[in-house]
Design a protein around this nucleic acid. Structure first.
Length: 257
DNA sequence: TGTTGACCTCG
DNA sequence: GAGGTCAAC
């Protein structure tokens, strides 16, 4: 199947920017999962060749319903930020994804204090449990020691407990309609979810484009270029506006890759 | 309210 | 030390 792109999309930047950990590039094809469906992608000019997920699922996954150039403009006109202006040019087509919330949540819980390579391995192990990413029900039936055997370390307890809570009715989707602070608090009530993981889940799966997750890299960037050490979320929204999360992703990407 | 150390595993 | 969280000061 072919999809005509009206929006800038760079697969290499987007799928390799630390938002997802289950995509691999083989030859010219990117292979991964969209809504639990194994999907192959290849881009040639404005054509996106795809197999697996449906067209509308792919449009949603890459948030192709949002105009990236308008987002750039919105951030730049508000902030006049020269660093971001250059990064938007350099990494044009790097997009924020709209992932499946449950998978996103578990991915970032087990990502803490880990290298990207280790994270990938853990997520691969989860996929190998059954067909596709295991549900909360499935994971809630495993024990903490099962997760330790998978190499999750002290995060095993978090995965076990969060799975139980979600399996018994905690609805991730209902968080979507909440206000920012309330949504973050709700997520942080889950074991293993702190400020950083909560905001990653909000930004990468729940459409909170103003979420500005702060990890070690962003902390350094904010210190170096913006002379900021605290209240970074507040600062980011004031400076960059409603799409602060996009600014975060470009700053992160330029620092890490 | 803010700071500090322990926590698992992998390369 | 790696894209942190939690409990104890």
């Amino acid at each position: 199947m072919i999809l005509k792109l009206k929006e800038p999309l760079n697969l290499d930047f987007t799928l390799n920017s630390g938002q997802v950990f289950n995509w691999k590039k083989n030859n010219d094809f990117w292979e991964g999962f969209v809504n639990g469906k194994k999907t192959k992608l290849k881009k040639k000019g404005a054509n996106l060749f795809f197999k697996g997920a449906s067209k509308s699922e792919i449009l949603s996954f890459f948030k192709l319903d949002e105009s990236l150039d308008e987002i750039y403009q919105s951030i730049l006109s508000k902030s006049g930020d020269l660093l971001l202006e250059s990064l938007f040019k350099k990494y044009r087509g790097l997009r924020i994804l709209r992932q499946e919330p449950w998978e996103c949540l578990i991915s970032f819980i087990i990502s803490q204090n880990s290298s990207i390579k280790t994270i990938r391995k853990r997520i691969e192990t989860l996929y190998s449990l059954n067909d596709g990413f295991p549900s909360a029900e499935t994971l809630s039936k495993l024990s903490e020691s099962d997760f330790r055997k998978m190499g999750f370390g002290y995060r095993s307890k978090y995965v076990k407990e969060t799975s139980e809570i979600v399996a018994s009715g905690f609805d991730l989707r209902k968080i979507k309609g909440r206000k920012f602070d309330s949504a973050l608090e709700e997520l942080k009530s889950l074991p293993g979810v702190g400020d950083k993981v909560g905001k990653c889940v909000m930004l990468f799966s729940l459409d909170f484009n103003e979420a500005f997750p702060v990890d070690v890299h962003i902390e350094n960037v904010m210190k170096k270029f913006y002379h900021r050490e605290r209240n970074i979320q507040e600062f980011a929204v004031k400076r960059f506006g409603a799409y602060a999360g996009y600014a975060q992703q470009y700053l992160f990407f330029s620092d890490v890759f």
